[in-house]
Design a protein around this nucleic acid. Structure first.
Lengths: 197, 197
DNA sequence: AGGTTATACCTAGGAGTCCTAGGAATGCCA
DNA sequence: TGGCATTCCTAGGACTCCTAGGTATAACCT
């Protein structure tokens, strides 16, 4: 009898592959075990539960996505950086739909595990860095970061859910959205606080 | 023996309530049946499968959300309409997290059933109507609609997933995002097609 | 009212899933 | 070579989805 040589990472990767191939909710302990040539009970040595596995897939995806974005934006600034950032985000979501969907999970991720994963924190830093060139200051900066992340995520999520009719290619709308966001960042509106107009 | 008086609608509503209370993935045939005081097998008279039920919940949510938005935007125009539209969207997502999450489901909804649901189609019309005041023309109009929908959805999705750190209230960022979108719509950038700068 | 029909709801059960408990095999290191 | 930690197993309980086939009830029709 040959051991399969499992580890939490290998289980997570198998789950992530499965998620991309057949959808996140088809990722079951049994399926993952089958793919690894192992009985489902064996997985519990490496992973606490199915929930835990899904959390690990989400963190893996966050890390991978962050790395792609970092590579894509390296050495770029302004509009170039914005476009590279956004395209890397969207491409990751397209290439790894299951992994990406795992990141949408309302958080019940093991905090201890999440603390070790550099992805999420790094992603925020990257976004701030990308916006440096636009001359925004806090709290506008945080608001702009959130707006960008919302738009990127929302677009790919609607795309994945079939939320766009067929009359115009999503690609066109995507490019135009990036144009719009760029000009928006260049002319970020002042706060209307106390404005009664 | 008293009959429960079930129907596809009542099963769907029970499922939707359950989704809001305990999360969409806790919506099982057994749980819904239990809530209705019925055996799980009985539900299959009214609903084809669990997938089918989830699709019905998604359509119900789409309809409800559209109605809320229609009420909120009635008689408004310009920025007022934009803010009312967006707030109605976000409020629905907050109040009915489970239902809302069901709408994110990658489409495997019974087409025949979807054709009868007015929600999604109506929602698109409403969005176009809201943008009428901004003087956009096709294809910019479609691009703008998609950008707005992406941002609204992305924001509430990230909010629900705990994607925003605690340093600044999401509410502030939301208001600023709406400001930003409004000025963006007033100064929609021309197409850069063929622009090599 | 009584009989007929449609259907709402049931019981029974198979297959698949998550997860635990405890045992056997394997690789490592003295 | 022997001891030990760990990997992986078998066995099994509880729950889930869904089907098949039977019973009870409501609605309709004369």
């Amino acid at each position: 009898m040959v051991r399969a040589g499992l580890t939490a990472e290998r289980v997570t990767i198998a789950g992530a592959e499965l998620a991309d191939e057949v959808g996140l909710d088809q990722v079951t302990m049994s399926q993952v075990a089958r793919r690894l040539g192992v009985k489902d009970a064996s997985l519990y040595t490496h992973v606490r539960s199915l929930e835990d596995l899904r959390g690990r897939i989400a963190l893996l995806a966050a890390d991978e996505k962050t790395i792609r974005i970092a590579e894509a934006t390296a050495g770029r600034a302004g509009r170039d950086a914005l476009v590279a950032f956004a395209n890397a985000w969207r491409e990751y979501a397209h290439r790894h739909p299951g992994r990406y969907m795992a990141t949408q999970t309302p958080i019940q991720i093991d905090p201890e595990l999440a603390a070790k994963a550099p992805g999420p924190r790094r992603a925020v830093e990257l976004t701030y860095g990308m916006l440096r060139g636009y001359g925004l200051t806090e709290p506008d900066l945080t608001d702009a970061v959130r707006l960008l992340r919302s738009t990127f995520h929302g677009f790919v999520a609607l795309e994945a859910a079939g939320g766009f009719a067929h009359k115009r290619s999503p690609q066109h709308s995507w490019v135009r959205a990036l144009d719009a966001l760029h000009t928006l960042l260049e002319h970020w509106p002042p706060s209307r606080e106390g404005d009664s107009s």
